[in-house]
Design a protein around this nucleic acid. Sequence first.
DNA 1: ACTGCTCGCGCAAACGGTTGCAGACGGCTC
DNA 2: GAGCCGTCTGCAACCGTTTGCGCGAGCAGT
Lengths: 356, 356
Amino acid sequence: MQAADSNGGSDAKEGAKRGSATLREVAQLAGVHPGTASRAINEETRGLVSEATAKRVLAAAKQIGYTPNPIARGLKTSRSHTVGVLIPDLTNPLFPPIVRGIQDRLERDGYTPLIANTDNDGEREKSSIEALAARRVDGLLTATAQADSAAFANLAELGIPVVLINRQVLGSSLRSVAPDDRAGVRLAVEHLAGLGHTRIAHLAGPSATSTGALRSQSFEETMRRLGLDPDPALIVSGGAMTEAEGERHCREQLASGVEFTAIVAANDLVALGCFDVFEAEGIDCPGDISVVGFNDMRFADRFDPPLTTIRIPHSEMGVRAAELLLEQIRDPGAPARHELLEPTLVVRGSTASPRP
Amino acid sequence: MQAADSNGGSDAKEGAKRGSATLREVAQLAGVHPGTASRAINEETRGLVSEATAKRVLAAAKQIGYTPNPIARGLKTSRSHTVGVLIPDLTNPLFPPIVRGIQDRLERDGYTPLIANTDNDGEREKSSIEALAARRVDGLLTATAQADSAAFANLAELGIPVVLINRQVLGSSLRSVAPDDRAGVRLAVEHLAGLGHTRIAHLAGPSATSTGALRSQSFEETMRRLGLDPDPALIVSGGAMTEAEGERHCREQLASGVEFTAIVAANDLVALGCFDVFEAEGIDCPGDISVVGFNDMRFADRFDPPLTTIRIPHSEMGVRAAELLLEQIRDPGAPARHELLEPTLVVRGSTASPRP
DNA sequence: ACTGCTCGCGCAAACGGTTGCAGACGGCTC
DNA sequence: GAGCCGTCTGCAACCGTTTGCGCGAGCAGT
């Protein structure tokens, strides 16, 4: 600050401090070669220099507040210590906890997530992947619903590790972590059947996603196993898993005239859509119709009525996904793994026994 | 370990494609010098080469699928095209829309956000800032409540632009965008007064944050202006703006024995905390006590009762913040600006006239 | 035809680290 | 005491782009 020596350029002296010191400066201060300084500073190569030198270098680094420049390092090592995270929409309450889990786990290992929203739009997804690849991410986590598998195959070819979240591509070598959708739906149907329901409808998600497909598949299986009729007329599928689509499907189902006393919704948002038509049509939930959701997203306990749903460990899902990816980044040859997280039933106010 | 790749060798051809082609290769293919290729590829320097050459280079680039390596570019230009985003907790429903706005706006200009959660912990905040600085972000957006202003001053000194979200440091040169907290609370109080309430309590946030301070300040002012008594016994402040703290404060307020028929909560989460004690104590809302929140976070319309609250344009806030930052990155000399976003009152089911 | 321009392009030096290679040095064995 | 070996450090070549500098060619002016 004190312009003691310089002319006017109060800040332009001492290398301007911009972005802190360089390795070269540290080396100079410690009286060693930059290469040596590099080795001393890097944990893994520290063993290559004498303890005394290491100590001296570290002290020098500390003294002038040196922080390694990851950009420069990345250029040489072609490692960015960065991973891409693809999600449909951060605004969907399902994702923040997942992302949070990812961030926390990644941070521990010095990795930084680059988050991109795709809005479930194939084009956006593709361009996001390209952008991420251009940024030289070391890996990719993706929680998008329908993936252009071509794009991912591409990545795999480039040698960029990928792990899928919340869905899986069967038979592929892509690692994944997802809730046990089948088990979850099983829990839901059994709960409803236990309450005495026999005519249960299913508002399924898009069958193109493993989430949608698995859940409706499990729905049918469980119904059958319990001796109930998985009437195709009671299953409507295809739409996105949003409130709007839930509302639409629920309305359709009601209009079809087929009788039912309970609904297994593809997820909580879809269940919320049902609530909307109930409200509009004067239907009592759970009196007239019971509903169970899926995900147990935040505030599910505060809706009117509080939503009975299937809880999955969101944040843990993020953590595990991050771990799988890290593992794969370090050892690209590791075998593919598909991890399934156990769901649990959370009974609240949206389910009850059917009227006799 | 990585003996995996040696024998199979299927992928090791053609330079392994790892991370796509380099500028040098493009240049070679186009028959020009790398420097020329660089100029041709870069929009801004394209004018320096002949049109014919540019065309040839671009074609070559396209042919071999060249994508510039931002790491290398960043090393040379000391621009990472990356900005840090500091938030307390992504899991707090207030933030996803803000972040989404930031992402969308930044993306348009080729910038990528690096998001870090601080959990309102000073230590974490400091280390996050350091980590972000180490990654050489070009700027910083921060939505954290209480900021160690020293840390930010530090950044400012390093020449890293900062813009504050959802709060402001008065008199500082830091740019900021925030909702007009005073106007918001004014709306809330006027609404309540309009319904006939005279004894209105305020569950304030921490006075150390501009959000908390401004809101409670405006509360008192408005009460006074309306000729109502801003009884200090009706104002409790200090806690974090969470459900738990809201619950605690609400319970305290009730226990104090001071009469009141309405509550202005510091934000929606605090309001939710009130709902919890109402439920536990058998208090009817809005029958016995009216509540108005702040933020109109997602699902505020679905609570029981639907929450009357002050809506602020979250996503727009993110967008504006990003714009301010971009502006400042490009022109560091630009004057400081504090932007205030207009809030609106959203009347729902948690407010009603007091019992006569 | 010669000077003086402008225009396009090549050249090479960065940016800040990492890393294979080789040499210096000291201690050990025989 | 010579040879060998292991340890530590210096050297320099990268990694992929950007960019200041200068040179040669083309062209107009006189």
